[in-house]
Amino acid sequence: MSNNNVLLEVKDLKVSFYLTEATVQAVDGVSFTIEAGKTLGIVGESGCGKSVTARAILGMVRKPGKITNGEILYHRAGQAIDIAKLDPEGPEIRSIRWGEIAMIFQEPMTSLSPVHTIGNQMIEAVQLHKSVSKSAAEAVSVDLMRRVGLPYPERLLTAYRHELSGGMRQRVMIAMALTCSPRLLIADEPTTALDVTTQAQILDLMRDLQDEYNMAIMFITHNLGVIAEMADDVIVMYLGKEVEVADVDTVFYGASHPYTQALLRSIPRHDVDVERLETISGSVPDPTAIPAGCAFHPRCRHYVKGACGTPPLVQVSAQHQVRCTRVYEINEHLAAAQTE
């Protein structure tokens, strides 16, 4: 993919956590590309490695975790910087953080300091990356807080975390993430902790801001409904591996991996009777004991003993990959397309 719109290229990324009792392979050979101005959605059940992948991009994998393999190529001014090789406390990665790749974390309630004012933290973000005066940084902050729909932004400068509702805190985080006009915004389940109305408002806001600032978004969620609203391209992850990669329409109208299909069947829809809503049978296996062969086989309705093996990522069409050995047998439309 020698597209000069490419912003970030992750190649065969592996992250392991070395715990005393076992090693957890949290991310196991994931590859993807993010293009400027586009939204990549990452979806999967809890523990499949979404957050760890996101942290790896900022060089922020927590101890006892380590990137053990792969490249994270960040493209800037015709150059590619391998983030995986940078010193995680060094100046290069610190200038990329927030200045070029900003992140909104999963926990809006505690992502702000309990003992510093909102203003202090916003101004800090601006001044870490731009040499501007405090009052200029303050003006930028107020402006962005107004932009994300926060009332009385001047007053918020001196407010503390506990004085804000969950929705307001997340808006503050979004405003803070925009302070340095990043090229990529990583949003790790930015709305999961919020009520449905607030959730919808925040998603709308993010889409508007994306257009305005022309930034790419890596949107992490376990909610396919949110993916449908936000993403251009989608990666479905299961136990540290991508099991299906496609554009958003293909995922919703031509999902070909049994796991994606099961996820889709578990979304409540108004055109289907709620009583027939399915959940995926079984639960996510213990990450220290990932099933051999196809990791999904204990829960897969199409599993055939001896026929599945360890599936590779199969390229079923130009923009569509599926990690399933039996993909053509269980998807007639793909088989038909292939024989043509």
Binding site: R62, R94, A102, M103, F105, T110, S111, Q121, M173
Partner: peptide, 16 residues
């Protein structure tokens, strides 16, 4: 030290 607000500060590019 593992609280999200510390992670936020780290993600902002603040030195350790």
């Amino acid at each position: 030290i593992n609280q999200p607000y510390v992670e936020t500060a780290r993600a902002k590019g603040l030195s350790e």
